[in-house]
């Protein structure tokens, strides 16, 4: 690595990741030529996005959120209903699903954001459950437990993208773009303001950080990305039902960031991959798949309190990758993403 100019490294890393995501992985998938592998890859990518968006709220801003899956569900239902009832295509439903999830998050955030620690956590649990009850019981709108079958798959500006490889590329593209956005939010001055809230919100307040507003913003932003993930899921599978968005799902996403390490975006991605792929690898164990989630989570809390890649180690990584920009001797560009 020493041969590289320090400032080239992030580019190299990102180019490597992009290459892996958009060339190597699809080639491998095409090589195996089995739909099942495509599905697993897409599922893993969607959960990477869900974990990363939760990471922003829970890991970076320190607000324990126990209802994230509900906003994922709101996005999925929004996309499904817009598509089946109004005949809109994926190009329109994707951003709209994110926006609708964000608006609902903003509405529930207004009264609850004053709450601290466990009270916030419990309020998010209640909100998640309320949204879930709506999905389950408002049969007129959501078809209740029967779920919704989507008639239109993935497409972009009229191009049909419902083929296996095209679906993969669409999911990977949307997830990659979202991750870039989430990365900019968490590895920038904005992220530092969020971290200061996590560390000591009274003190952050005295430094001029608008804590209440920032909490609301980050909750809304994370719901936006959860909604985007929901739209991807709805159009990818063509069928959604309330069971995909219950409390267990929220906990699964939380377990991902706990396993990966709170506060670290790469950690969230690793945690999501571990908890999605491990059960797939261990398929022979059958029923033991879900119990693994609990065991891995417990083991991580007990033995790796910082997760696989907690804030501290993540900080070091961020500094190696992006630290060059912070040097005074650098090109003067600050702590924003370059």
């Amino acid at each position: 690595m020493s041969g590289f100019d320090a400032r080239m490294r992030p580019l190299a890393v990102r180019a490597g990741l992009a290459l892996l995501l958009f060339a190597v992985l699809p080639a491998v998938l095409a090589g195996f030529d089995r739909s099942y592998y495509y599905q697993v890859a897409n599922l893993a990518l969607i959960f990477v996005l869900l974990a990363a968006s939760l990471q922003l709220v829970t890991g970076v801003a320190g607000l324990l959120h126990l209802g994230h899956a509900a906003f994922y569900g709101v996005g999925a239902y929004a996309a499904a209903l817009l598509s089946t009832e109004l005949g809109l295509g994926f190009t329109v439903t994707l951003p709209l699903a994110g926006l609708i999830a964000a608006v609902i998050a903003l509405l529930v955030a207004l009264p609850t954001m004053r709450l601290v620690s466990i009270y916030f956590a419990v309020a998010t649990l209640a909100i998640g459950q309320m949204l879930y009850l709506v999905m389950l019981n408002w049969v007129g709108l959501t078809k209740g437990p029967n779920g919704i079958v989507l008639t239109r798959g993935l497409e972009l500006f009229g191009f049909d993208l419902s083929g296996r490889l095209a679906t993969y590329y669409t999911v990977a593209g949307v997830v990659a773009l979202s991750l870039v956005a989430l990365g900019r939010l968490s590895h920038s001055y904005y992220g530092n303001a969020l971290r200061s809230i996590r560390e000591d919100d009274q003190c952050a307040d005295a430094m001029g950080v608008r804590t209440a507003r920032l909490k609301m913003e980050v909750f809304t932003l994370s719901a936006f990305f959860a909604g985007v993930a929901g739209a991807l899921w709805a159009h990818m599978t063509g069928y959604i039902s309330p069971g995909d968005f219950d409390f267990g799902e929220s906990i699964l996403i939380l377990a991902m960031i706990v396993v990966g390490g709170l506060g670290s975006l790469p950690g969230a991605a690793i945690g999501a991959l571990v908890l999605i792929l491990l059960p797939e690898v261990l398929r022979d164990l059958g029923d033991f798949r879900n119990i693994m989630v609990g065991l891995v989570m417990f083991g991580c809390i007990l033995f790796l309190p910082k997760g696989l890649m907690g804030e501290v180690s993540a900080l070091r990584l961020a500094r190696q990758q992006f630290g060059a920009a912070w040097r005074r001797t650098g090109n003067g560009v600050g702590i924003g993403w370059r």
Binding site: Y190, N192, S196, M207, G208, V209, G336
Partner: peptide
């Protein structure tokens, strides 16, 4: 940096 962030405009879209 939090001190500097706190006293400058701090919306998310600048970071995005």
């Amino acid at each position: 940096s939090v001190g500097a962030v706190g006293t400058l405009p701090q919306g998310p879209f600048g970071a995005l």
